[in-house]
Design a protein around this nucleic acid. Structure first.
Length: 442
DNA sequence: TCTGGGGTCCTAGGACCC
DNA sequence: TCTGGGGTCCTAGGACCC
């Protein structure tokens, strides 16, 4: 009773003296993948660096210097390869073991600085910092976090602070865009906010992508300011509730709350482009098996069981000389399972439904869906349930062995693996593989 | 020669039911 | 001369995010 009373007193008091009830900080790492590489290669500091997607396909991260050279995000690497050689750009294949580890180091620093955080992606997190200004100014808080992350990881972050998530994103954009902000922008002053909105194009807003921004531009809504002041029912009618929410958020009405606990996944996807075009069934089947294994592993780590397994295969959409084919099929498992053998079996069945000879395949993948909680799978009333007694311990052992660094795999994925992706410029796993740990010579 | 991978949410439309 | 309406569920497709 007492605490309840106290809370209501505090909150009514807070609302009375404050313009906004909530405060969010969005912290993200500048050029994350490229920066993670240069941390371990100090010789590359101040030089252009890019990181490529799987298969060395596209450019997915660029250091500030590489951006200055005009290399675009998402550009196919073969188009800029020559340019990179000419301009001494250092190129890395993506190294997810390294990024995941660096990410967890950054996140643990953030966790120590805020009462609750939502890890939004590998390189960014929302922090709930409501009321933190009782102790220190928001601006100062931002700089402290920035310095700490720098000290512990050598990575530079940008900090955007505002009363809604969408505005925090906008603040973060401003912190990145203008160097003189020192990497921290707080948007709790209406005049400053309006000024920023007027000079920022509408497509920089979180939730406004390519299509919607074209549509908005046609309607004369060009800046963030225009969108924030658009008629809300008009937006709802012509777009959707999603954009309506965005407009409300831009006006300081918090519609998106902090999701501290990641919601359970509804789908697990594992897919890869092949290192080269594939036209034989055996190789595609091997790839499907390997993806199924990986998906089953992910499923177990989520502690879930699934009943639906889909497989898809497709040829390249860019190649106009060869005929295009893309298809997907779903196969069901009778009882919810997390056993790799069941999932490989269903995946192969699905593949057989869509397999066509004579195409130059470019990519294959598998999707798991229809999840059940491992504790209470839905048994079928009219069938006997025969779970292999050995399934769980077997899978547990499998995962343990594979986590130890030694690898055990199912024969289905083959040995030759001519479908495997290209990673020609892979850096060492500096922080996660014993043999790759940097040695400092004194 | 060479163009990533993994997710979510919303909406419209069809099937079906009463 | 007349041909309902309301609801749910599912799926495909489109949009967005990093």
């Amino acid at each position: 009773m007492m605490t309840h009373l106290l809370k209501s007193l505090v909150s009514s008091h807070t609302i009375f003296i404050r313009l906004y009830p909530d405060m969010f900080a969005l912290v993200d790492v500048n050029s994350f993948y490229a920066s993670a590489q240069t941390v371990f290669r100090p010789d590359l500091k101040g030089k252009p660096v890019i990181v490529l997607s799987n298969n060395d396909g596209c450019v997915i991260a660029r250091s500030a210097e590489a951006k200055k050279l005009g290399i675009k995000m998402g550009e196919p690497f073969f188009k800029v390869k020559f340019f990179c050689e000419q301009n001494r750009v250092t190129v890395f294949s993506s190294n997810y073991a390294l990024y995941a580890d660096m990410s967890s180091r950054v996140m643990s620093v953030l966790e120590q600085n805020a009462p609750s955080i939502e890890i939004y992606s590998i390189d960014e997190a929302f922090l709930d910092i409501t009321g933190i200004d009782h102790y220190q100014a928001f601006e100062q808080f931002g700089h402290d976090v920035r310095n700490q992350v720098k000290q512990y990881t050598k990575l530079t972050v940008g900090v955007g602070i505002a009363p809604t998530k969408t505005l925090a994103k906008l603040a973060n954009y401003a912190a990145k865009k203008w160097v003189k902000t020192g990497g921290v922008v707080v948007l709790n002053d209406p005049d400053r906010l309006a000024k920023l909105m007027k000079i920022t194009p509408v497509d920089e807003v979180w939730g406004v992508g390519r299509r919607i921004s074209v549509h908005l531009n046609e309607l004369g809504i060009k800046t963030v300011y225009d969108l924030a002041h658009a008629d809300i029912s008009f937006i709802r009618r012509h777009f959707s509730v999603v954009l309506e929410r965005t407009v409300r958020e831009l006006n300081g009405e918090s519609c998106l709350s902090l999701e501290e606990i990641a919601p359970a996944k509804k789908q697990i996807v594992v897919s890869r482009s092949f290192g080269q075009k594939i036209n034989d069934y055996q190789s595609v089947k091997e790839a499907i098996c390997a993806h199924a294994e990986r998906a089953a592993e992910k499923l177990r780590s989520e502690e879930r069981y699934c009943k639906q397994v889909s497989a898809f295969i497709r040829t390249s959409a860019f190649n106009e000389r060869n005929p295009y084919y893309s298809n997907v099929a779903t196969s069901s498992i009778t009882f919810p399972s997390q056993d790799t053998r069941d999932i490989i079996h269903a995946a192969t069945e699905a593949l057989n439904m869509i397999w066509r000879e004579g195409f130059q395949y470019h990519k294959a993948g598998i999707m798991l869906g229809d999840f059940y909680d491992s504790k209470n799978p839905q048994y079928d009333l009219f069938n006997d349930y025969h779970e292999s007694k050995h399934s769980e311990p077997l899978m547990k052992t499998l995962d343990l062995i594979n986590a130890s660094g030694r690898k055990v795999w199912f024969a289905g994925q083959g040995v030759k693996k001519n479908w495997e992706m290209k990673r020609g410029k892979l850096s060492p796993a500096y922080t996660t593989k014993l043999s790759d740990i940097p040695i400092v010579k004194c």
